[in-house]
């Protein structure tokens, strides 16, 4: 199919309003007003929810910190608190975005470039987030039995054998899935930036 053939297909396409002026003044007015209200109500519920869960977990670990009586469990507890502080911060950072209102009047190529840069940044934050989540999971596996049953699993050889083999397999499978999931998207964003740079450099 040649571009001209594509063009004639597009021209013959049916994707247009059947009636001209089908958007009434009332509808346009309603769209402006209600979209404005929706924007005002736009709260990042998932991030706030995640942040709250992390805050509760920090309070719980801090309140029960005296139960951690060995150097290993105390260090693990401190690392867990640090990770629980870092994770919501990374989550909010990954969502910080270009100013929507000011971006819409820019040239399309500028918005595309910013879009690709933001996408790359988001993916990198996501990767970092997943790695930290994995570390947090390991820390929690070590801490939970201590908190709930008062047992120190770190001295249990069977636990370590199980935790290391299970952890290794999990990490291997998980990292493969991650690189497959993010790899293509990252390549597309990088290619887009490269292409825009090449084109604008020739202008």
């Amino acid at each position: 199919m040649e571009l001209d053939e594509l063009k004639s297909n597009w021209e013959n396409s049916n994707n247009r309003p059947a009636n001209q002026n089908s958007l009434t003044a009332k509808m346009i007015d309603q769209m402006i007003q209600t979209k404005y209200d929706a924007k005002l109500n736009k709260i990042r519920y998932p991030e706030i929810g995640g942040g709250l869960v992390c805050a509760i977990a920090i309070v719980f670990i801090a309140c029960n910190f005296n139960q951690l009586d060995t150097a290993v469990t105390r260090s693990t507890g401190a690392i867990a608190i640090l990770l629980l502080i870092l994770l919501p911060i990374l989550s909010f950072l990954s969502l910080s975005k270009l100013n929507f209102e000011s971006a819409v009047s820019e040239s399309h190529v500028q918005v595309l470039q910013q879009f690709a840069i933001d996408r790359l940044r988001f993916q990198r934050y996501q990767k970092m987030n997943v790695t930290l989540c994995y570390l947090l999971m390991v820390a929690i596996i070590i801490l939970l039995p201590k908190f709930f049953y008062g047992k120190d699993l770190v001295i249990n050889k069977a636990f370590w054998t199980f935790a290391f083999s299970f952890g290794y397999i999990f990490l291997l499978v998980f990292s493969r899935l991650m690189s497959r999931y993010y790899g293509r998207s990252l390549n597309q964003a990088e290619e887009l930036i490269r292409e825009i740079k090449e084109t604008t450099a020739n202008s």
Partner: peptide
């Protein structure tokens, strides 16, 4: 473009029935 970025995190759209526009579905006759 910005809509693509926010699509998964969208606040539900305004309940205006655009179907009332009699806007034909995208397609070729």
């Amino acid at each position: 473009i910005l809509h693509l970025k926010q699509r998964k995190r969208k606040v539900p759209a305004v309940p205006i029935d655009l179907g009332a526009l009699n806007f034909a579905e995208t397609g070729f006759d």
